[in-house]
Design a protein around this nucleic acid. Structure first.
Length: 286
DNA sequence: AACCAGGGAAGAT
DNA sequence: ATCTTCCATGGT
C-alpha cells in the first residue's frame, strides 16, 4: 500500500471534475468524500488508485492511494487529471477573446482524460450519433457484460476480448450492426498491434488523425475526440459535433446553428487552446 | 408523431 | 470531389 500527496498551482476545480465524471455511471465517484477510484491499465496490469481532493480551488491538493507501481501510476494520474497544465495561462489567453465570460463561468474546469486510450476510442465510436443518456447506457451495458471488475471498479474489456466478440453478441446489447463491426474491427487492430497508442507521443495531431481516419468507423469527429480525451491534446475543435454547434448557437444567440465557414472564423482566436474552447462550450449546455 | 442525437460509410451524382 | 441515404434506437 502506498500513498502520495500532490499539490499543484490553482485554479483547479476538482468538484466540477468529479461532477462531470459522475455523469458516466461507470465511474466510481463519491461526492461526500470528494474522491474517485481510477482504473489504470499499465503493461497489461490493472490497478486501482483512489484520488481524494483535499485542497481548494486556488490551492488544489490530492491524496493518492494505491497498492503497487506507484511511480507509473502517479505519472499517469498527473496526465489524466491535467495536473501539469497551468490553467491560469489558458485563462489569460481567453480573456482576450469573445469567450471571456464563458471561461469566467466555468473557472477552474480542467480537461480530464479518459482513463485509457483504447477505452476512449471505443467510447467515441459507441457515442457516435447517439444522445448522451442512451450512449451512457450502451457503454455501461458493454463494459458490465464484457469488462472486468477489480477492487469494485470496472475496467473496459481488453482489445483481445473485444476482438473475440461477434456482431450478434453486440447486437444483443442494442448496438447497430455497423457500430458492432467498427468496435470489433478496431479491437482487432489494437490486439494485433497494427494500431499502437504508445508510439503516438512522438506524432503530431495531424499524423495521428490521418492514421486513425483510415480505420473503418473512425471519421474526423472520432479522431478529434480521441486526440482530446484520449491523449490530452490541447488544440482540437470537432466542428462536426452537434453539441458544439448548439453551444455556439446559444452563446452567440444565433438563429441557426453556425455553418462550417462561420465556425472556422470564430475559432481562429482560440488557438492554440481549441480543446479548452470545446470543453467549456460543451459545459455551457450541460 | 416526428424529429433529433456530442457521425460515418456507402452509394449516387 | 461533393451530395444523399442509411444505419438503429432512445429521448423530447
Amino acid at each position: 500500500m502506498w500513498q502520495e500527496t500532490i499539490s499543484i498551482t490553482g485554479p483547479y476545480d476538482f468538484d466540477l471534475a468529479l461532477y462531470r465524471l459522475k455523469l458516466d455511471p461507470l465511474h466510481h465517484v463519491d461526492m461526500n468524500n470528494k474522491s474517485v477510484k481510477v482504473p489504470i491499465q499499465l503493461d497489461s496490469r490493472q490497478l486501482v488508485v483512489e484520488v481524494v481532493g483535499v485542497g481548494s480551488l486556488q490551492e488544489p491538493e490530492f491524496i493518492l492511494k494505491g497498492t503497487e507501481m506507484k511511480e507509473q501510476a502517479v505519472d499517469r494520474l498527473v496526465e489524466i487529471f491535467g495536473w501539469n497544465i497551468e490553467l491560469i495561462k489558458i485563462y489569460e489567453h481567453f480573456q482576450k477573446t469573445e469567450l471571456k465570460s464563458l471561461f469566467q463561468q466555468h473557472y477552474g474546469t480542467p480537461l480530464v482524460l479518459d482513463f485509457d486510450p483504447f477505452a476512449c476510442l471505443l467510447k467515441c465510436i459507441i457515442h457516435q450519433q447517439l444522445n448522451l443518456s442512451f450512449a451512457h447506457t450502451l457503454t455501461e451495458r458493454f463494459v458490465m457484460t464484457f469488462g472486468t471488475e477489480h477492487e469494485g471498479v470496472w475496467f473496459y474489456p481488453t482489445p483481445e476480448k473485444v476482438a473475440s466478440l461477434t456482431v450478434e453478441q453486440l447486437r444483443e446489447l442494442q448496438f447497430s450492426g455497423r457500430k458492432a463491426e467498427y468496435v470489433i474491427g478496431i479491437a482487432e487492430l489494437v490486439a494485433s498491434e497494427k494500431l499502437r497508442f504508445n508510439i503516438m507521443d512522438q506524432m503530431s495531431d495531424e499524423e495521428i488523425a490521418k492514421e486513425l481516419t483510415k480505420i473503418r468507423g473512425v471519421g474526423p469527429w472520432t479522431a478529434q475526440n480521441f486526440l482530446m480525451f484520449g491523449l490530452g491534446r490541447q488544440n482540437l475543435f470537432p466542428m462536426a459535433d452537434i453539441g458544439l454547434q448548439n453551444a455556439l448557437k446559444r452563446y452567440y444567440q444565433l438563429d441557426q446553428k453556425p455553418t462550417a465557414e462561420e465556425m472556422e472564423k470564430l475559432k481562429k482566436p482560440w488557438e492554440p487552446y481549441l480543446s479548452y474552447a470545446s470543453l467549456y462550450l460543451w459545459r455551457s449546455i450541460e
